[in-house]
Design a protein around this nucleic acid. Sequence first.
DNA 1: GGTCTGACTAGGT
DNA 2: AACCTAGCCAGAC
Length: 109
Amino acid sequence: MSEQSKWERIYSVVKQIPSGQVATYGQIATLAGYYRQARQVGYALHAVPSDDIPWHRVINAQGKISLNLEMGGAVQRKMLESEGVIFSSAGIISLREFRWEPAIDPLES
DNA sequence: GGTCTGACTAGGT
DNA sequence: AACCTAGCCAGAC
């Protein structure tokens, strides 16, 4: 499988994250059929080709933003907050409250 | 070609 | 809670 179609599969899952919800890198990897390849999800999002992919709704497993502030972390937080996602004083999002839990397999939809 | 890096994670100590 | 390790693999050099 080429890396192109692999990334596109990752993107197709990310596109299905609803506004106001978030997913973790590992969750996207698993949903796309690439269990344990969370790093590749991060890499794919780093090179995100267009702005119709809600890359900002992907965070790490600790509920935190993985970018440095200068890499766009501040922008990501602002976009999430504008969608209604709440950050704690420590900058942590409650995954229990905001994590996306797809009812159907994203690859089948 | 080998080696290193990294928007990561799960499991163990 | 903090730290370590193995697993993953596309680029950059």
